[in-house]
Simulated assay, not measured.
Amino acid sequence: MSLAERLQGLLVAAAALVGLGTGLALPIGPAAEHAVLPALLVMLTAVFVQMDAAHVGEVRRAKTLVATSLVLNFVFTPALAWALGAGLLGGEPDLRIGLLLLLVTPCTDWYLVFTAMARGHTGIAAALLPVNLVLQLVLLPVYVLLLGGQAAMVDAATLAESVLLVLVVPLALAMVLRWASARFKGAAWRQRYVMGPASLLVLPLLYVAVLAMFAWQARTVLEHGTELLALLVPLAIFFVLLPLIATGLSRLLRLTAAHRVTLTMTTTARNSPIALAIAVAAFPDRPLIAVALVVGPLLELPVLALIAQLVRTRRPTPKAALPL
């Protein structure tokens, strides 16, 4: 794990603070507004271009792990997100939608890093990426409309258009780029000149988007700072409860140590960049929803780093040679 990845939580917080200070000191809000969505769209294209659908076949070798992760991610977690929002954020509809958007989108990028750190099964983890992406693409509008209730206040057509813009367009561009670069230049050229640079772009573009969003909504953050602190309790409950449930189910189902790590990471890590992009596109007149989504990774990334150490599998100790 690179130094930049280890410091990601701090750098997200720094980008937010720089954006907040700049937005309060200078009248750059309108200009910053136009930078948020393009930065997120390019970032998601860079994320998707690194995804290899060839790994999907590996999910057949771990049916119990895959089935359990899908139930936790797409049945249990949405129900928990609704319960946490209704129980702890009942008077804050924008925070409820922000929490819902964050929790119902399983991670499709950085959880691989933490899975590798904890010595999980990275092959199966990679195979789950396109599966999780397609399912959240299809189910996200359903979750928002059904579980968001009156707090959502958005029609199905607007939400579908936003998902199409934020997920389908970058995904289609990434697939075309992967195919064309390999078809006309070869796999080695694609790895060196497409996937390599794309991996280096993701984090800087995320920081640019966060900085621009806070510069754009500096006044909103200042006015609602106390309300944003209310998100810490439901997020803390989620990031404690999910690893415990995943670990308990892993032991109950007698999964191997590597599969147990993989299940814990894929059900705990959330996809805040995608959730943020959808919030910006679907709720442009409700900026508190997007601002709320930045709180998630500030708590999530240190938690994932800690979990990776707690569930880290031990390498088998080589047996000593018997004396002759």
Rank of each mutant, 00 (worst) to 15 (best):
Q8S: 10
G9E: 14
L10S: 05
A15K: 11
G19Y: 01
G19H: 05
L20F: 15
L24K: 12
A25D: 11
A25Y: 05
L26S: 12
G29L: 01
G29H: 08
P30V: 04
P30R: 11
A31I: 09
E33A: 14
H34V: 06
H34S: 11
H34G: 14
P38N: 12
A39V: 00
L44Y: 02
V49G: 13
V49P: 12
V49C: 10
Q50V: 12
M51A: 15
A53E: 10
A54M: 04
H55G: 01
V56Q: 02
G57T: 11
E58Y: 12
V59R: 06
A62N: 08
A62F: 01
A62K: 10
T64S: 03
L65K: 01
A67V: 12
T68I: 08
S69P: 11
N73K: 07
T77S: 09
A79P: 11
L80V: 12
W82L: 09
A83K: 00
L84F: 13
L84P: 03
A86E: 14
A86L: 12
L88E: 08
E92V: 00
R96S: 14
L99T: 02
L101A: 11
L102D: 04
L103N: 02
V104R: 09
T105K: 02
P106H: 08
C107K: 13
D109F: 07
Y111M: 15
V113Q: 06
V113N: 07
